[in-house]
């Protein structure tokens, strides 16, 4: 299993992602975006960071880099694609997933552990969990507020494409547990295929036992195992 972790100028979670995947026994390598995707690919990670300095909108520039056309083609062929944080912003900006991630309601950068409720446990990203399970994973973003118009949100829910919602420690989805003002407390969504997912929290920062208190994020990366 070879997973490409696509590195843009300003990506800074690419090494973390490779380490976390390697810890799970996954053959992962960083790929500089200008070099294109390697052949015989089994998965793609769009890592966190501040690609292109978040100019214009977070993820806007990287989403238009030539490699993203290849990422979209691979996604359509069924190659698993995961976007994390800035990678989630890149994924939504490039049309891989619905909605947009924009400025936190607080207008501040927020770096803190959050509780997430697993909305579906029958996807590659969540099969390590139970539906309704609460996991703790950190966020670190200034533009993580999930925005989507009302009709598209209804479609998203009807199609069961919400993967995670911000919740309290008991799994109740409340305004108080919503760190950034996201519509419906949405923290992660699926693309048109279940093999494509983006989320603002960092599963790779909650995988290595020697790094974080929580290893709850490991289950997301297990999609690549």
């Amino acid at each position: 299993m070879t997973v490409a972790v696509v590195q843009f100028g300003g990506s800074n979670c690419d090494r973390d992602a490779v380490r976390a995947l390697s810890h799970l026994g996954v053959d992962a390598e960083r790929v500089w975006h200008e070099d294109g995707l390697p052949p015989d690919l089994d998965g793609i990670v769009l890592p966190g960071g501040f690609s292109y300095g978040d100019y214009l909108r977070a993820g806007a520039m990287a989403a238009r880099a030539p490699i993203m056309a290849a990422v979209r083609d691979a996604a359509e062929e069924g190659v698993p694609v995961l976007g994390v944080c800035n990678g989630a912003q890149i994924g939504s900006e490039s049309g891989l997933t619905p909605g947009a991630f924009t400025t936190n309601a607080s207008a501040r950068f927020q770096c803190e552990p959050v509780s997430l409720r697993v909305e579906r446990a029958d996807t590659p990203w969540t099969r390590a969990y139970d539906e309704g399970e609460v996991i703790e994973v950190p966020i670190a973003h200034g533009e993580g507020r999930f925005e989507i118009d009302d009709d598209a949100y209804e479609d998203l829910v009807a199609d069961d494409r919400v993967l995670f919602r911000y919740c309290d420690a008991d799994g109740t989805v409340t305004d108080e547990a919503n760190p950034n003002g996201s519509t419906g407390n949405v923290a992660g969504v699926l693309g048109e295929r279940e093999t494509v997912a983006v989320l603002m929290p960092h599963p790779e920062r909650a995988t290595l036992p020697d790094v974080a208190g929580s290893t709850d994020g490991e289950g997301v990366l297990r999609a690549f195992v």
């Binding site: 214009l56 909108r57 806007a60 238009r64 939504s92 900006e93 619905p98 909605g99 947009a100 118009d149």
Partner: peptide, 9 residues
Amino acid sequence: ERLLANPTI
């Protein structure tokens, strides 16, 4: 359409 605006927001 292609870059400056994000039609979602």
